[in-house]
Amino acid sequence: MPPNPTPTDEDLMERYRDGDAGAFDVLYGRHKGGVFRYLARQCGQRATAEELFQDVWMNLIRARTSYTVTAKFTTYLYRVAHNRLIDLYRSQAGAALASFDDEGGPQLDDVPAARVDDPAVSADVRQQARRLLQLIDGLPAAQREAFLLQQESDMSIEDIALATGVSRETAKSRLRYAVAKLREGLQHQS
């Protein structure tokens, strides 16, 4: 059986844990875009997203020696990012946390909207994509998070539940609500 030419994320992280700096380069290249977009669209500010982005990866670097494969690497990575976002929300205001803490209650619609006019974000966005981003930005934070995790890291519902620290049913419900709203928004536009 020929060896797998594409090492898994977990293999790369273990190699980095054991001292292979090149493995981290590969791992970073795979996930830097997804993590960055997840953070940028969750927090709505690019500068803040960059700061959070650096914190997430630095936390990963510092914790490399204690890394053990207990779940998918992406779940581990986005769990770190999720925790950094929670810290950010707590430092800004407590309002945004309501959408994370409230399972079935009223969903927040006042999450800071993404800055679509940001040159780094809107330069290459098409019309439909721009609309989609607007719709994503308009989602409650918890639903947006579930949708972004699914799109950026190709997570399953179980992985989303693990990364966000909620039950599987809650994660599934959030995702369903998010997709339904986005579809409805896109259809309404067309």
Partner: peptide, 10 residues
């Protein structure tokens, strides 16, 4: 549609 817009990079 999302992939078309997902070009943001650090």
């Amino acid at each position: 549609i999302y992939r078309a817009s997902a070009e943001d990079m650090p």
